[in-house]
């Protein structure tokens, strides 16, 4: 060992480099911001849809059909599912599967940086974006469209945490088991549509059969719990527990099957 240290060539003029993890986070954030479509759909779209609906006078009147709520109030929790699922089921798994397919993870593993770091960084970037998109919609809903603020803020935060975790964990499973990026995109799109359907984004829930609505309460991110925390009497513990179980189970499966190359 000592011999190898003495064999070190005298260093050529050295370059002051930033910290590795910070540099990686910075680079990945830049790349994320260079994809305007994702930003548009994930951050802005749900808010725009809600604002557009709020511009229709008839939808600002309370109705028995919506349990005495206005349509905007009734529909807002469903819209939260859009940005959570776009980022968790499409952006995250497609990004990771692409990195694996193109050998970007492998290239990292040939450097002192472990490829797991890029996975964590992408996970964080997507989570932060979900938080920003959700916050934007809450602010616009409450301050612009006069939707009441969540009645159970702590329960709402918990519901958001668990629902988002469950969706992202499923996204990691997709990233783990799909050998090709295209397949990850395809499976992610199907999963995305299922979550949106059960969240009542495509058809508002009053148009869905009761059985589907009940099932939908257990489909991540669990819009039933969001609704109950926002407008109702608080989320049913069983819904939250199911989200937590899905999050833990799916993360375990993803960790078990994830391949770096």
């Amino acid at each position: 060992m000592t011999e190898t240290t003495t064999a070190t060539p005298t260093p050529t003029p050295q370059h002051r480099a930033p910290r590795p993890l910070r540099a990686l986070a910075l680079a990945e954030t830049r790349l994320f911001l260079r994809d305007p479509m994702t930003l548009l759909i994930a951050v802005v779209l749900p808010t725009v849809v809600l604002a557009a609906l709020g511009a229709v006078p008839a939808l600002r009147e309370p109705s028995e059909m919506f349990g005495g709520l206005r349509f905007t109030d009734y529909f807002a929790p469903s819209l939260l599912a859009i940005n959570i699922a776009v980022l968790g089921l499409q952006n995250l798994p497609t990004g990771l599967a692409t990195y694996r397919e193109k050998g970007i993870l492998r290239r990292l593993s040939a450097s002192p940086m472990h490829p797991a770091a890029v996975l964590v960084v992408q996970l964080l970037i997507n989570v932060v974006t979900v938080v920003i998109g959700t916050a934007l919609m809450l602010v616009v809903a409450v301050y612009v469209l006069d939707v009441p603020a969540p009645r159970h803020p702590v329960a709402f935060a918990l519901t958001f945490l668990l629902g988002t975790s469950a969706v992202f964990a499923l996204g990691l499973v997709i990233a783990a088991v799909t050998p090709r990026a295209r397949l990850a995109t395809g499976i992610g799109a199907v999963a995305f549509m299922l979550t949106q359907f059960f969240a009542g984004v495509y058809l508002p829930k009053f148009l869905l059969p009761e059985a589907l609505v009940r099932i939908g309460e257990f489909v991540p991110p669990g819009v039933g719990a969001f609704q109950a925390a926002w407008m109702g009497d608080g989320p049913a513990p069983v819904h939250l527990v199911v989200m937590a179980v899905i999050a833990v189970a799916a993360t375990t499966v993803a960790a078990r099957f994830f391949r770096w190359e």
């Binding site: 050529t12 050295q14 540099a23 790349l31 050998g103």
Partner: peptide, 28 residues
């Protein structure tokens, strides 16, 4: 490596700066 790419939108200078940051005494 024989077949490894970089992210499509990562720029040449950024790629080198990034990888330089991974090493204790990188070249310029």
């Amino acid at each position: 490596l024989q077949a490894s790419e970089l992210p499509e939108k990562l720029r040449v200078g950024e790629a080198l700066e990034l990888y330089a940051s991974f090493y204790p005494s990188p070249l310029d």
